[in-house]
Amino acid sequence: MSFSKQDMARRAAAEIPAGSIVNLGIGLPTLCADYLPEGHAFLHSENGLLGMGPFPFEGDEHPQLINAGKQTVTVLPGGSTFDSAASFAMIRGGHVDLAILGAMQVSAAGDLANWAVPGGKVMGIGGAMDLATGCRRVIAIMQHATREGEHKLVARCTYPLTATAVVARVITELGVFDPVGDGFRVVELAPGVERAQVAALTGAPLL
């Protein structure tokens, strides 16, 4: 047993305090929105939207209302739109309380690698470095290891870094872990997951 993707998203959503400003990264983090009670938090999208709502009903989609993943979205009552400089000033100025981001590697020191695979196609940086550096708290949500069993929670990142010492908590299919410098502190294990199993799939000590 382990967490499903939906379980991971639900567990990450539980980290979102009521009344907070949250940026959800592209991909799995976006699922967290499905587990937030209505009005619980304000979702920020770095292309210039605060108060982002769910996907529109069929036929209501508008090409000029999208999220940072370029998906059609909606804006909730109380929402606002603004330009990119203002949007990133919000992020860089520490006004966004929490970022939940996907990750390729997280180190025991909280370093984050989530924008490029060595030797792979360069997709670009986008808002990743700004979000990781500027948001007040950063949570990574990711698979615990690659399909080939390579560690993704590591002693030191080998992939190109996004930011150093920024990740406060990691949520994987195996549980919840905090990078604390010399290893990962086990906050909780997914149902049926054994500590030894996690240790074998983690590239740094479990504490």
Binding site: F57, E58, E61, K70, T72
Partner: peptide, 9 residues
């Protein structure tokens, strides 16, 4: 539209 994402009405 690059990614048309909708919910059933």
């Amino acid at each position: 539209i690059e990614f048309r994402t909708v919910r059933p009405r």
